[in-house]
């Protein structure tokens, strides 16, 4: 098992392995978040996803999120693993584990981590639908740019 707290991998991610990295005697709570590949989005069927990352910078940004969390919730310990490459329906794309003495910090810090990942970590996903492909576009991961670039309402 890789001991690095913040990592990008092209191998399947084990929730158990990420949780083990944050277990410690001081912890009375561990929260885990698993982001998985969804088959149906607004009635449209996904066949599989392709994730790509600027790996070296993505790992630095995950570490930065860890530093932000240590500042906001000093008693927590965080580990994040994000997978890249081809992922099938139901596969785990990201696991975030946070341990803390009490549950509230563990929940809040975990939520903070996934929101920050969607803002600053250079990872992109390409949807492979039954009838084509699309790079998913905005920072909330909910909008696709069919022409490969933002248009209309998305422009500043």
């Amino acid at each position: 098992m890789n001991e690095r707290l913040f990592m990008i991998t092209d191998k399947p991610v084990s929730i158990e392995d990420v949780v083990k990295k944050v277990m410690r005697p001081e912890a009375g709570a561990v929260t885990t978040f698993a982001g998985t590949v969804r088959e149906w989005t607004n009635g449209k069927r996904t066949l599989f996803l392709q994730y790509e990352a600027y790996v070296s910078m993505a790992e630095k940004m995950l570490e930065q999120i860890g530093a932000e969390i240590r500042e906001k919730w000093p008693e927590t310990k965080v580990a994040i693993t994000h997978r890249i490459g081809k992922l099938d329906i139901g596969d785990i794309a990201v696991v975030i584990a946070v341990s803390s003495p009490h549950r509230n910090d563990a929940y809040e810090a975990n939520r903070y981590a996934i929101e920050r990942i969607k803002q600053i970590v250079p990872i992109w996903k390409k949807e492979h639908w039954e009838d084509g492909t699309e790079w998913v576009g905005n920072q909330l991961g909910t909008k696709a740019y069919p022409t490969g670039k933002p248009e209309g309402e998305d422009l500043p």
Binding site: G35, Y51, Y54, K60, A93, V94, P122, I123, K125, G137
Partner: peptide
């Protein structure tokens, strides 16, 4: 834009040897 793996503003000056990455809106998670 990221220069040497740090997000950069438009007015940042560039140096020979810099690695400049163009980062479309991210969609990890």
């Amino acid at each position: 834009v990221a220069v040497n793996e740090e997000y950069a503003r438009d007015d940042q000056t560039l140096q020979p040897g810099d690695i400049v990455a163009f980062i479309p809106p991210v969609s990890g998670g």
